[in-house]
Design a protein around this nucleic acid. Structure first.
Lengths: 229, 229
DNA sequence: CGCACTCTTGATATTTCTCAAAATGGGTGG
DNA sequence: CCACCCATTTTGAGAAATATCAAGAGTGCG
């Protein structure tokens, strides 16, 4: 990883000019992590928490319960910043959904380093707070929403992240499979599939092939998702 | 809030001596929040994220979905530090479970201020990361665990936080009701109650009155909770 | 000591899961 | 460019888990 790479990344992620000196100090800490599609990332030290930046591609954090029970706790898209979970209760791993390029900094050293620049510290924390809030929203979804609400919420949130406005509505090309959707929503693939079908029959979405979805009715999908309108 | 109060709080929470100058700068930002048992906290500005410290008592963050659907996303006990959630997707509120005393700092200004002291920044971030990890663990619980696993996980985690070792095992006096437990585990009070009964019949716990629980078999409750042993 | 509220227990309803099979999509090679 | 093939997705029927509704029991406070 070069200082320039990092400066470009931070500019894209945080809308912030990283001073040269800070860039090189961070580079000294940082680890490039390249993950191939379908592979598991090997973070150097599983006992250390990492701050993860996504430069390219799509990845996921997965918690494991045994008996093939998996829960996706976050999808990471390009220009995301988040914290890789560390817990004595659940083992987590980081998987590439597509080939992807990440930067992982040991949290302790990273925080210590960026503290020298309050603007940078604020921008990084802001992103961590957003990720934290998403996790709380996920708890509400998983604890209290119905299958239909979960799928509608998922589509709404993906539309906000990667959707493109066009004539019919908002179109998105899902980079993730039904299994991964199910694993993130606490459902089975069959239930996810049935909910896609139902949303299509209700005229709220349209689908094309496995991954293309168009949200035809932005208001109604929010309603069905139990989101504030 | 006096500088001394804050210094005492930070010593207890973060095991860290807060310099006088930092204490008074933080005091200038900070808001005492006193919540009566059963009341809802009025945080000044609902559009601002807050860093919350618990000095005394027990509180909860609740996410609201309408139709009386509520999800408790965190219980706050004395000496906890966490981030009050802000989200466009779910409205959250902060409730006193007992009378309690909190300090709430606007996150932006707080981060900016503590950045001046890298040790302090690291300690605060460490606590935020722990809270974040708990939220991720909660997603795994809510997404993939059975009712029995959820209740066993809840009891294990409360035992770690407020349990007292004695001859029979680990005893705890739950400061929270079955309804609140249910609201945090994504279950109904009836299901929670049935799981308490079953754990008692299995000889894993003993109960006394509404709130006293003794964990008789630490290993077996972790097994039943699907926690690593 | 009694009353209000919480908790527990039981019977039934509903949702989602599981298991099984058919359909579809998208990539490959002829 | 088309046909084939494998993996993914969809659909269906039945099973399991938890929710709901309804009583009854207990706790602890005034």
């Amino acid at each position: 990883m070069s200082d320039n790479d990092l400066q470009r990344l931070f500019a894209a992620l945080l809308h912030l000019d990283l001073p040269k000196s800070m860039a090189s100090r961070l580079c000294a800490l940082g680890g490039d992590v390249d993950i191939k599609c379908g592979a598991v990332a090997e973070l150097d030290d599983p006992a250390v928490r990492f701050i993860v930046f996504v430069a390219e591609g799509v990845a996921k954090f997965v918690g494991h319960l045994g008996n093939d029970r998996e829960q996706v706790v976050a999808f990471l898209l390009a220009n995301d910043l988040t914290v890789f979970p560390r817990s004595d209760a659940v083992p987590y791993s980081l998987h590439g959904i597509t080939d992807c390029r990440l930067f992982a900094f040991p949290a302790d050293a990273f925080i210590r380093t960026i503290a020298a620049d309050p603007d940078l510290a604020k921008a990084v924390c802001e992103h961590m707070f957003v990720a934290f809030d998403q996790s709380r929203d996920m708890s509400v979804l998983l604890g209290r929403k119905t299958a239909q609400e979960r799928v509608a919420t998922f589509l709404t949130s993906m539309a906000e992240r990667i959707g493109k406005q066009n004539d019919d509505g908002v179109s998105l090309s899902l980079p993730i499979s039904r299994r991964e959707i199910a694993d993130s929503l606490g459902l089975t693939i069959e239930t996810v599939s049935r909910q896609f079908t139902e949303l299509r029959e209700l005229g709220i979405i349209d689908t094309n092939g496995r991954s293309d979805v168009t949200i035809l009715d932005r208001l109604r999908i929010r309603e069905v998702a139990a989101l504030p309108c």
